[in-house]
């Protein structure tokens, strides 16, 4: 399974997905797989420790909600602090990505890499 280069990759991606709106764990797993073209298929069991960690840092808040047919789900919502941290991490990632691009692509991180 490919891993994000940043150690905070998965938590940050979870924050980014939650920035689009509240979601429960299953929803996040599905959206992550969909957005990455199934390139990053995080085992569902690992999403929850991540979410609980984010909750512990007060970056997200969670509450039980009744879904369709009375099914209970724990829905996660991004907090203001989470939004702030997401913005910081996104900026960090952007800097990191540009630096790597300069090395790998030989330019200034602009343009398209061609292989072969």
């Amino acid at each position: 399974m490919p891993r994000p280069a940043s150690p905070d990759g998965y938590p940050t991606m979870c924050l980014a997905l939650l920035a689009e709106g509240p979601a429960h764990g299953y929803d996040l797993v599905a959206r992550l797989a969909e957005r990455t073209g199934a390139a990053m298929r995080l085992p569902a069991g690992l999403v929850y420790p991540i979410l609980h960690g984010l909750e512990g840092e007060a970056l997200v808040k969670a509450e039980w909600a009744e879904g369709e047919q009375g099914r209970r789900r724990r829905v996660y919502t991004l907090t203001e602090r989470g939004r702030h941290v997401l913005a910081e991490r996104t900026a960090q990632w952007e800097r990191h990505r540009r630096a790597v691009d300069r090395v790998l692509l030989g330019g200034w991180g602009v343009g398209v890499a061609t292989h072969g």
Binding site: H24, G25, A44, G45, R71, R73, R74
Partner: peptide
Amino acid sequence: ELRAHLEEV
């Protein structure tokens, strides 16, 4: 929570 996820899947 995990059980709810399993149910969903």
